[in-house]
Simulated assay, not measured.
Amino acid sequence: MAIWVDADACPVVIKQIIFKACNRTKIKATFVANQYLSIPQSPYLSFIQVEKGFDIADNKIVEKVSANDLVITQDIPLADEVITKGALALSPRGSLFSKENIKSRLNMRDFMETLRSSGVQTGGPAALDNKDKQAFANELDKYLARNKP
């Protein structure tokens, strides 16, 4: 059991929550990004730097993930791929992606992408707030409690 973090787009505050949680519970987390990421020295934290390019980090996570691992990502297609492999996916806002909800989320993502490509201004996601951080920390703690080493 391990945690994989799609680190290129993961907010700093969420990374800090993961650092603390993994050190506290002694569960390993690997951060995957296409640019250098400074992480605290810890036997429970590691970093894989991949080449720059579209979906290179995502592909590395899909290659390495195992059933029951947890992937932290806001990338819905990546969440879909890891769920297909039997892993769990959690967004930095605390939303747990599942077999039951991932297809509808993919459909909504594709719909919004179609709107944007046709020139409709859809705006981006709201800034991460304290409610989002707490929701993420709560979901991460539930996962860690169920998967103690």
Rank of each mutant, 00 (worst) to 15 (best):
G119W: 09
W4E: 05
K28N: 15
D58M: 02
L78I: 03
I61D: 02
P11V: 03
D80K: 11
V32E: 07
F97M: 06
S98H: 04
N107E: 15
Q49F: 01
D141L: 05
D69E: 06
Q121V: 13
L140G: 02
L88A: 11
I56V: 15
R93E: 08
S66G: 04
Y36D: 14
P43G: 10
L78Q: 01
P77F: 00
N68D: 13
S46H: 12
Q35C: 12
A21L: 09
A79N: 02
R116L: 09
E51Q: 14
G86L: 01
D69C: 02
S117M: 12
C10T: 14
C22S: 09
N59G: 11
L90R: 00
T30K: 08
A87G: 05
E51G: 14
N68T: 11
E100Y: 06
K142P: 05
Y44G: 01
Q41Y: 13
Q41T: 15
G124D: 08
S42T: 11
Y36C: 06
D129C: 10
D141I: 01
Q16T: 05
C10N: 05
Y44L: 04
N138E: 13
L140V: 04
D141C: 05
A7N: 10
P92G: 02
D6V: 10
A79Y: 03
I48R: 03
Y44C: 10
G53Q: 02
M1R: 10
I72M: 06
L70T: 01
T114P: 00
I72G: 03
K64W: 02
R105V: 08
L115G: 07
E81W: 05
A21E: 14
Q49Y: 01
D69S: 01
N34H: 15
A67S: 14
C22V: 06
T30Q: 10
P40W: 09
N23G: 10
L115I: 06
